[in-house]
Design a protein around this nucleic acid. Structure first.
Lengths: 231, 231
DNA sequence: ACCTGAACACCGTTCAAGT
DNA sequence: ACCTGAACACCGTTCAAGT
């Protein structure tokens, strides 16, 4: 599922598929497995955020000793890689082949992408730092195909894909972190008042108070899609 | 210079301006100061990256004990905040008031912004996570003014500013991290070969091999600027 | 094939002082 | 007003075993 596993040296081979008795402990608890580790890591990241993921706590939740994790996983970095790609697994069918409504399809894909990252706010900030996993590449592929059908020439494809990627990533990362750091919204307000003289335009347009994230996202996306060069 | 200082409790007030003998130790070494701390933190971040910044090492470079830092700074987070905003200080004059060439001015500002973040690759990934410092707000203000003069209505300003912000941020964050993680470019190539069947469109358009970052950035930016609603 | 505890190296920060 | 060393709590990971 993941492209690379067991980071670098890997003194021991990771587990092979099913060696017959891989099932569950007598107790009833399913024994450790990559799948369980990754799923629990996602839970933990959702609950505690990106620096709330500790190997010890992860092991605790799994009812195992810390070091047991290291048989399945090379190091903590790998847990991040796997959790990240896991979140981008496809759930629903890739959109229909409706050539007419390429745009609706593309918007749907990008909003889906954004929704996932907002549901797992750690994923947006992790995304650029990590290698692209299979699911992420799959999404880029589906996206490229849709744009290709819509008439975007191969020569323009990189600009198209990267522009959309950049936009979605930037929007989501910003939104996710604003939502978090506005725990101190009080401080934000206070600062904003002191601001009015030095930043009149920001004050006038209420830039920092815009809370219509979805609408603003969609409008900017429309600008981008309108401008894509298509044959 | 920074908007907030001394995080929360702050048992001791931070240093006030000049208390006369604030100069240098007899030895010649300038004594510790917020400015020196921040400047050295930026150096260290440039050299070692975002998780290469350790308080002990920072203190070492400054020829001081670790705990000396904590008189000037509340905690490590604050060092990040200050370093980030420091990097965005204005160096050259804000562009001329040439209303005709608003576009040239805006492009110049955004490319400047991007250049800064590429020069300090840690800054791009830090930017969304931290409160906006004075320099960053100043740049947003200048940007808003330019767009306003160019005919963007106040009602459209948020979409305009956030779209550009998202785009630049996403582009830079992606580019900076690709540059880093392509230390393992070998692995990237190998993966790409195994890919060709499963990701034919990506393979055909050579998405992951596009190295014309500057050109791609500029073209996408043009699409965005073309589409901005202006009165 | 899979799991484990003890131990190490490292790091941010508190504390109680020093000048 | 400014700096400091010792100590604490915590964390990722190595090692040498266990079954």
């Amino acid at each position: 599922m993941a492209v690379k596993r067991n980071g670098g040296q890997g003194k021991r081979p990771p587990r092979v598929e099913a060696t017959a008795q891989a099932g569950r402990k007598p107790g009833g608890e399913p024994s450790l497995s990559l799948e369980r580790i990754v799923a629990t890591a996602v839970e933990l990241l959702d609950a505690e955020g990106i620096e709330g993921l500790k190997m010890r706590q992860l092991a605790d939740r799994l009812g195992a000793g810390v070091m047991s994790l290291y048989w399945h996983v090379g190091n903590k970095e790998e847990v991040f890689d796997l959790a990240l790609d896991a979140v981008f697994a496809f759930l629903d069918q890739p959109q229909t082949d409706d050539v007419e409504d390429w745009r609706k399809g593309v918007v749907r894909m990008l909003e889906d992408w954004r929704a996932i990252m907002l549901r797992h706010p750690w994923s947006a900030s992790l995304l650029p730092r990590r290698a692209l996993g299979a699911n992420i590449l799959g999404r880029l592929e589906t996206m490229s195909e849709a744009l290709s059908r819509a008439g975007v020439a191969d020569a323009d494809m990189n600009v198209a894909i990267w522009s959309l990627w950049n936009y979605v990533l930037g929007a989501t990362v910003t939104r996710a972190s604003f939502a978090l750091s506005d725990a101190d919204q009080a401080a934000g307000q206070e600062r904003l008042s002191a601001l009015s003289e030095r930043y009149p335009t920001i004050e006038r347009t209420r830039l920092l108070l815009d809370s219509d994230w979805d609408g603003t996202f969609r409008k900017g996306l429309d600008v981008l899609l309108d401008g894509l060069p298509r044959g």
